[in-house]
């Protein structure tokens, strides 16, 4: 079971209070994009065994969205961060680099 900290309301709770909403940081291609781009946006997901970035929502709490970095194999939660961003924060990436050397080659 994941122990999650919501960056919006500061609550740390187990995962049943939250809901996962899939991979994060996906470019939302829209009108004017090519078929390939559209396919990538709609269907192509990394589904890595290891480090993964996801969108989550504090479903039974403050109701706000946020991002989470976690390991899909060990279920370790590296951290959560604001939903209003295109990329994970640098310090979080550095922490993941230290814990999982070489993860960028895999996922």
């Amino acid at each position: 079971m994941l122990i999650v900290s919501c960056p919006n309301c500061g609550i740390t709770a187990e995962e049943t209070e939250f809901h996962a909403h899939g991979e994060a940081h996906i470019t939302r291609h829209t009108v004017g994009s090519s078929d390939d781009q559209m396919e990538t946006y709609l269907f192509m997901r990394k589904n890595p065994k290891g480090v993964h970035f996801e969108r989550w929502r504090h479903q039974n709490g403050c109701g706000k969205w946020f991002h989470m970095a976690r390991d899909t194999m060990t279920l370790e939660v590296f951290g959560t961060y604001s939903a209003q961003t295109y990329n994970p924060p640098k310090d979080l990436l550095a922490e993941i680099d230290a814990k999982r050397p070489g993860w960028r080659d895999v996922s």
């Binding site: 309301c9 609550i11 709770a13 049943t16 209070e17 479903q59 039974n60 709490g61 403050c62």
Partner: peptide, 9 residues
Amino acid sequence: RRTRIAQVP
């Protein structure tokens, strides 16, 4: 605290 009670918010 906002949370769930059994299966409902």
